[in-house]
C-alpha cells in the first residue's frame, strides 16, 4: 500500500530502529478537562480527576520496544496496563498520543491517526493479541481451524488447502491435537482454548504480539504450559511481545524489561531482574515485597 505520510510524521531514529515507539499515550474516559492529567496519577493516588470526575486510564505513557524483545508491564487493577494494550490493538481509541511501528511505512506514520481501514491492516498483519478470556479473541462456535483461517482470510488468502495446512502447523506448534481442528473451541478446556488463541494470533506472522493476562485464572500446570509455549514461540519466531500481568512470577519468566504501572502512569521502568531485586520506587518495593 502506498500511503502518504500523516502530518505528524517523525523521522526515523539514527541508530537501529526500534519496532514500536509509543509517545505520550493518553486515554481519558469522560469529558476531560485541563486539570485531568496533573491531578491524577500515583502521587495523587487516584485515576479520577477531582475536578471533572473523568477517569484518566493512561496518562502520558511512552515506551520503545526493540524487535524480538519481550517487554513486561506489571501493575494492579486500575493501573491502566490493559488499557494500554487495548489502545495499541485499536480496541480503544486514544485521547491523545502517537504510536509508530517500523514495519508500517518505515515507522514514519502515526498509527493512531490513520483511517479505520488502514488500522485494520495494521491490526491483522502487524499485531497479534492474546486476551485473558479466549472468547474475546476467538469465535468459540467456529472450528479451531476456522478461527485460524479467519486471520488468513483477513490477509487475503483464498485457498482452503493452504489455510488448513497452516492451521495444522500452528496447532501443532501450540500442542493442540490436530484431530480436533474442525471442532469449535467451545468444547475445549480453558488451557486448550488459550492455545488455539495463540495459534490464531500467529497466523499472519505478526512482528509484535500483545499478551493480556494470558495465564491469569488458570491452574498452575496450565499456566506453566502456556508460558513455556509463549517463551519458545517467541524465541523461535523472533517475536516481540508486550506481556501484561499482575503476577510478578509471570513477568520474571517472560520479560527482559519491565514497566511498573500505577494509577495510569509508569512509575518505574528497567531490566526485569533489577525491578524485582532492586526496586527503586516505593510502589514497586511494595509490590515486590507483597508477592507470595
Amino acid at each position: 500500500m502506498s500511503i502518504a505520510p500523516a502530518p505528524s510524521a517523525v523521522p526515523p531514529a539514527a541508530d537501529a530502529q526500534p519496532l514500536l515507539v509509543l509517545e505520550r499515550l493518553l486515554k481519558i474516559y469522560g469529558e476531560g478537562c485541563p486539570d485531568c492529567v496533573a491531578r491524577t496519577g500515583p502521587a495523587a493516588g487516584t485515576n479520577v480527576c477531582p475536578r471533572c470526575r473523568s477517569v484518566v486510564a493512561c496518562g502520558d505513557l511512552s515506551l520503545r520496544l526493540d524487535p524480538g524483545e519481550i517487554f513486561g508491564i506489571v501493575g494492579e487493577s486500575g493501573s491502566g496496563k490493559s488499557t494500554l494494550l487495548r489502545c495499541l490493538y485499536f480496541d480503544e481509541t486514544p485521547t491523545a498520543g502517537h504510536a509508530y511501528l517500523t514495519p508500517y511505512e518505515a515507522g514514519r506514520v502515526d498509527v493512531f491517526a490513520i483511517s479505520p481501514q488502514r488500522r485494520r491492516y495494521v491490526r491483522h498483519h502487524l499485531l497479534g493479541m492474546v486476551y485473558q478470556h479466549p472468547h474475546l479473541g476467538l469465535d468459540l462456535d467456529t472450528s479451531a481451524g476456522g478461527n485460524i483461517a479467519e486471520k488468513m482470510l483477513m490477509a487475503g488468502t483464498r485457498h482452503v488447502g493452504r489455510m488448513r495446512e497452516r492451521a495444522r502447523e500452528l496447532l501443532g506448534r501450540t500442542e493442540v491435537p490436530l484431530d480436533r481442528m474442525d471442532e469449535p473451541p467451545r468444547r475445549f478446556s480453558g488451557g486448550m482454548q488459550q492455545r488455539v488463541q495463540i495459534a490464531k494470533t500467529l497466523a499472519n506472522n505478526p512482528p509484535l504480539v500483545l499478551l493480556d493476562e494470558v495465564t491469569t485464572g488458570q491452574d498452575v500446570s496450565v499456566q506453566a504450559r502456556v508460558l513455556d509455549l509463549i517463551r519458545s514461540l517467541g524465541r523461535s519466531l523472533g517475536l516481540a511481545m508486550i506481556a501484561v500481568s499482575h503476577d510478578l512470577g509471570v513477568i520474571r519468566l517472560l520479560a527482559q524489561r519491565t514497566a511498573v504501572m500505577k494509577n495510569g502512569r509508569i512509575v518505574e521502568l528497567g531490566l526485569t531482574d533489577q525491578i524485582l531485586e532492586d526496586p527503586q520506587h516505593p510502589y514497586t518495593q511494595l509490590l515486590v515485597s507483597s508477592q507470595l
Partner: peptide, 19 residues
Amino acid sequence: HAEQDYSRLWVYLYEDIVR
C-alpha cells in the same frame, strides 16, 4: 461493508467446505 471486512462471511464459506 464500510471497512470491506468480509472475513466472517468467508469463514462461513470455509466452514461449509470443511463440513
